[in-house]
Design a protein around this nucleic acid. Structure first.
Lengths: 147, 147
DNA sequence: TGCATATAGTCAGTATGCTGTCAATAGGGC
DNA sequence: GCCCTATTGACAGCATACTGACTATATGCA
């Protein structure tokens, strides 16, 4: 007998839903959301990316990313800068405030992860990471070697 | 060095995103979405649930569920019936068309799952199911024993 | 140099998800 | 029977996600 609540798709959806909710709770005091954190995290790694680059790295749709950047800009965490070589494009740069939040926001991420995986062993977590990498499918753009 | 693209939260989000996209592609010909399928799936199991019951079983917010039912009703797949004992509540019932789509839509679900997990062994899939169940946290309402 | 194709980012529309609030109804206690 | 608290479903607002379409700009080729 088929039970939707046992299907992988449903389980994945609900696990993600809980992960999102736990992370949102942690970020609440900073008035930020998990997707906004993700964008900041990519910029902490590499500031000044274009929206296309950010979209590719974060795997967020370009139009959705536009709105995310709008909000981060409104909060004073990033700025859109004109691109030195391409008048169509922007370079998205962190403000000093956006940069300064990194330690605290990473702490939020750590806390959320600890809560999410509290019922799992380290081996389970490693296993989950391995399986989720496979589920994601083809290699991400940021993983491609530069020739 | 911390890399957001290796974090469990990010991996979970992107794995879910791909699962959702694959399933959406399968359902496209029926002009339905994964969340709509989930609601139908719960009703195929047990027709005539109230919105509160459906919300609990599917773990979808009551207000979000309202919109989902609106659309399914508009497509002629479900109907809101007045509750025999509670004038506040409805019983959400499948229409003949909603019921008749079950075989084909389940096939879509199967196909999407096959695509999603094509890179995993059966053992991996079983392991993933086990771990995702734990990640979801406390027991779901539908799993609680009836005393 | 002009033209065709591609790209960067935005806009409109639709779907989903959550929080806070509200009106109508239910139920229990006195 | 009245009152208080709780419940059911909807509404408004905001955030995220995707599709299709559009404008301005870039690029390559003849």
């Amino acid at each position: 007998m088929y039970h939707i609540e046992k299907s992988v798709g449903f389980l994945l959806a609900k696990a993600y839903q809980r992960a999102f909710a736990l992370f949102r709770e942690e970020l609440e005091e900073f008035d930020l959301t998990p997707p906004q954190y993700a964008i900041l995290a990519f910029l902490w790694q590499q500031d000044g990316l274009t929206q296309v680059e950010l979209s590719e790295k974060s795997q967020v749709d370009r139009t959705t990313l536009g709105g995310l950047i709008d909000r981060l800009e409104k909060y004073g965490l990033v700025e859109r800068h004109t691109h030195p070589h391409d008048r169509r494009a922007y370079q998205i740069k962190l403000t000093p405030r956006g940069r300064s939040l990194e330690p605290q926001l990473r702490e939020c991420s750590k806390n959320a992860l600890a809560k999410l995986t509290s019922g799992l062993s380290k081996k389970d977590v490693a296993e989950l990471e391995r399986i989720l990498e496979i589920l994601r499918g083809e290699t991400r753009v940021y993983e491609k070697p530069t020739f």
